[in-house]
């Protein structure tokens, strides 16, 4: 019951999803839609589980007054305030002014800045990676430079660089991306088969 039923469910649903792909009947499509709706509804509970875990960890930090517990309190405060704004009877829901402002003036600046911060770290990483110590490193450097110079106004050099960048993207880049995608496709098929046939069972955890 603890392990056999989940394995059976995985096999049945996995096999069903494969078979329905080859059955172009309306009933098959309806069942497919239902199952996808199931996944979405169950998935939202998985998110609730994650948020509960975040709340529990933060609460334990506050309760124990452990190191930097004040920040855990801040996390909880941000969470509850945003939930309050997002709850329609009190805060007005997803279209309320406060909800949108919190999104625009808290989430967007922080997220955009964190990603832009990576520009600095990439610059230092690039210095280490792009020192043309070998021919292959020089190829990496050259390809990256062409792509980066593409958007710079370089006068008469702009057009040839643009053409070269376009060629790199459409020919060698496409070739390598295809090789990677074919590998990913095969890997995904093998992994999915292992899961469906019950060879891969790590998701069941220990018992």
């Amino acid at each position: 019951m603890k392990r056999q039923l989940p394995l059976m469910l995985v096999f049945l649903l996995g096999a069903f999803m494969i078979i329905q792909y080859f059955v172009p009947a309306q009933a098959s499509l309806d069942a497919y839609e239902f199952i996808l709706d199931w996944m979405i509804i169950i998935g939202i509970f998985a998110m609730a589980l994650g948020i509960w875990s975040l709340m529990r960890v933060s609460w334990h930090k506050i309760k124990r007054r452990s190191h930097d517990w004040q920040y855990a309190a801040l996390t909880l405060a941000g969470l509850f305030i945003m939930v309050l704004f997002g709850f329609e009877p009190i805060g007005g829901g997803l279209k309320s002014y406060l909800w949108l402002q919190f999104y625009e003036f808290v989430m967007v600046p922080v997220l955009a800045t964190i990603f832009s911060l990576l520009a600095f770290f990439m610059a230092s990483a690039a210095y280490r990676a792009f020192r043309a110590r070998s021919l292959l490193a020089a190829v990496l450097l050259g390809s990256a430079m062409v792509l980066m110079f593409r958007v710079l106004p370089l006068g008469p050099l702009s057009d040839p660089i643009n053409e070269l960048a376009g060629w790199i993207l459409v020919v060698p880049n496409l070739a390598a991306k295809r090789a990677i995608l074919i590998g990913v496709g095969l890997g995904m098929v093998a992994t999915s088969l292992k899961v469906i046939l019950g060879i891969e069972r790590s998701y069941l955890g220990r018992d």
């Binding site: 394995l7 096999f11 096999a15 494969i18 996944m39 496709g185 098929v189 992994t191 899961v195 469906i196």
Partner: peptide, 25 residues
């Protein structure tokens, strides 16, 4: 909790097998 997890994993595995086989391979 393994039951709903099995629903998600089984469905995703079946869905990915045909999707990746078709589009990525």
């Amino acid at each position: 909790a393994r039951w709903p997890l099995a629903v998600i994993i089984g469905t995703t595995a079946g869905f990915n097998l045909s999707r990746y086989l078709h589009s990525d391979f």
